[in-house]
Amino acid sequence: MVNGRLYIDTPKAEKDELKKIARAAGKRAIWDRERRLWHVDADIQPELIGRWLPSQGT
């Protein structure tokens, strides 16, 4: 997380779905050209974007 942004690695084929989910939650999904990653507002519910979050081990 950087400056209230949660960076996630979303495949190009799934970008529209990410944007739709974020919009439905009242959030934004934005492409960061410099980092070449999508980011969403950090306060989005993690279960909405869980498939794009890095796994936490095990």
Results as ranks from 00 to 15, higher is better:
25 A>G: 03
8 I>L: 08
31 W>S: 10
37 L>W: 00
47 E>H: 15
37 L>V: 04
32 D>V: 10
34 E>R: 14
16 D>E: 12
53 L>H: 07
39 H>W: 01
8 I>H: 01
22 A>K: 03
17 E>R: 04
47 E>F: 12
19 K>L: 10
41 D>N: 08
36 R>I: 10
1 M>W: 01
54 P>Q: 05
51 R>D: 10
23 R>Y: 06
39 H>N: 09
10 T>N: 12
39 H>G: 05
23 R>Q: 08
14 E>A: 15
2 V>I: 13
25 A>P: 02
25 A>I: 05
1 M>I: 14
6 L>D: 01
11 P>T: 14
32 D>W: 05
8 I>G: 10
32 D>F: 04
15 K>W: 12
44 I>L: 02
22 A>C: 08
8 I>S: 08
4 G>A: 00
49 I>W: 01
15 K>L: 13
4 G>P: 03
1 M>H: 02
33 R>H: 15
25 A>C: 11
7 Y>S: 09
30 I>V: 12
52 W>M: 05
50 G>V: 06
27 K>F: 00
54 P>W: 06
9 D>K: 03
17 E>G: 13
40 V>E: 00
3 N>L: 11
45 Q>I: 12
19 K>F: 02
41 D>L: 09
36 R>Y: 01
18 L>F: 04
10 T>C: 14
18 L>P: 03
19 K>I: 09
45 Q>R: 07
26 G>C: 08
39 H>I: 07
44 I>Q: 04
25 A>F: 00
7 Y>W: 02
31 W>L: 14
12 K>L: 15
47 E>Q: 14
36 R>A: 13
14 E>W: 02
16 D>F: 09
4 G>T: 07
55 S>A: 15
5 R>P: 02
9 D>W: 03
30 I>C: 15
8 I>F: 02
36 R>S: 12
51 R>A: 14
29 A>L: 09
41 D>Q: 06
2 V>P: 02
37 L>R: 00
49 I>A: 10
52 W>R: 05
42 A>G: 09
17 E>D: 09
43 D>A: 08
46 P>R: 11
1 M>V: 15
44 I>D: 04
39 H>E: 00
52 W>T: 10
44 I>G: 07
48 L>Q: 01
6 L>Y: 00
29 A>K: 00
20 K>Q: 03
37 L>D: 00
29 A>Y: 00
10 T>E: 06
5 R>E: 02
13 A>P: 08
23 R>E: 13
8 I>T: 06
34 E>N: 13
45 Q>H: 13
15 K>E: 14
3 N>R: 09
3 N>D: 13
37 L>M: 02
35 R>V: 10
44 I>F: 00
50 G>W: 01
13 A>D: 07
28 R>S: 12
11 P>W: 04
34 E>I: 15
43 D>M: 03
14 E>N: 05
4 G>R: 07
20 K>V: 11
6 L>Q: 10
26 G>M: 12
51 R>L: 11
35 R>F: 01
26 G>K: 11
39 H>P: 04
41 D>E: 05
27 K>H: 07
47 E>W: 07
36 R>P: 06
22 A>I: 02
22 A>Q: 06
4 G>F: 07
52 W>G: 04
48 L>F: 06
47 E>A: 15
7 Y>M: 01
28 R>G: 12
5 R>F: 04
